[in-house]
Amino acid sequence: MDRAHSHLLRRGRFSQPGGLYLLTTVTYERKRIFTDFQLARSVIHQLRQTELDGLCRSLAWVVMPDHVHWLIELRSGTLCCLMRRFKSRSTHALYKVGMPRRRLWQPGFHDHALRREESVVQVARYIVANPMRAGLVRRVGDYPHWDAVWI
C-alpha cells in the first residue's frame, strides 16, 4: 500500500464495543516474515495477549507469511488502539526472538464491520481457509498458524 493513501483507511472508521470486525494487516513491503515458525508463533502470542488484556475477543485468525486476518469482537477501546498495541507488541516480541530490527508492519490496517446478514461462521471459514486458497496446504488442518473459537 502506498503510504500517501494510508489515511484513507481511517475515513469513516467507527469502533463499536461489542461490534464484530474482520481486521487485516500486512507486513512491510509484503515480506514473507512468518514463514519462520518461531516468528509466527510470537505474533500469535500477541494476538492472544490482546484478548487477555480485555481489548477484544478473538473469534478466528490466521497468520499468513506476509499478513494477518483477525476476526474479533471489540471489547474496549478503539480498533486503532487495538491494532497499535498489537503491532507494537508483536514487533518488540519479534525483536526479542532475534528478528533484525527493521520495520515489521505497513502503516494502517483494513477493517470490515460485519453486518447482521453476514454469517460470522462463514467469515471465520473464509479466514482459516486462506492458506488453502494461497496454495500453502491442501487441508486447513495442515496449516499450523490459525485458530477459531468453533474448533
Rank of each mutant, 00 (worst) to 15 (best):
M1I: 05
R3K: 13
R3E: 14
R3T: 15
H5Q: 09
S6N: 12
H7G: 06
H7L: 10
H7R: 13
L9A: 15
L9Q: 15
R11N: 12
R11Y: 13
R11C: 12
R11H: 15
G12N: 10
G12L: 12
F14C: 10
S15F: 06
P17L: 11
P17Q: 13
L20S: 10
L20F: 15
L20I: 13
L20Y: 14
Y21W: 08
L22G: 00
V26N: 07
R30D: 07
R32Q: 13
R32N: 14
F34T: 02
F34W: 14
T35P: 00
T35S: 09
D36H: 09
A40D: 04
R41H: 08
S42Q: 10
S42N: 04
H45K: 14
R48Q: 15
R48A: 12
T50V: 08
T50P: 00
E51M: 04
C56W: 00
C56K: 04
C56G: 01
C56S: 05
R57C: 08
R57K: 10
A60V: 02
A60W: 01
W61K: 06
V63Q: 03
H67R: 10
H69C: 02
W70Y: 08
E73P: 07
S76D: 12
S76Y: 09
S76P: 05
G77D: 00
L79N: 00
L79S: 02
L79I: 07
C80V: 10
C80T: 13
L82T: 05
R84F: 11
R84P: 05
F86D: 00
K87E: 00
K87N: 01
S88G: 15
R89A: 05
S90M: 06
T91Y: 00
H92L: 14
A93M: 05
L94T: 08
Y95F: 13
M99A: 13
M99Y: 09
M99C: 09
P100T: 03
R101K: 13
R103D: 09
F109A: 01
F109L: 01
H110R: 14
H110M: 09
H110C: 08
D111H: 04
H112Y: 06
A113V: 10
L114V: 03
R116F: 15
E117M: 06
V120C: 08
V121K: 14
V121H: 15
V121S: 15
V123T: 09
V123F: 03
V123Y: 01
R125D: 13
I127N: 01
I127Y: 03
V128F: 01
V128M: 02
A129F: 12
A129C: 11
N130A: 04
R133H: 11
A134K: 12
A134V: 07
A134M: 08
L136Q: 03
R138I: 11
R139M: 10
R139Q: 13
V140R: 08
G141I: 09
D142M: 06
D142K: 04
Y143A: 05
H145V: 03
D147M: 10
D147W: 13
A148Y: 15
W150F: 15
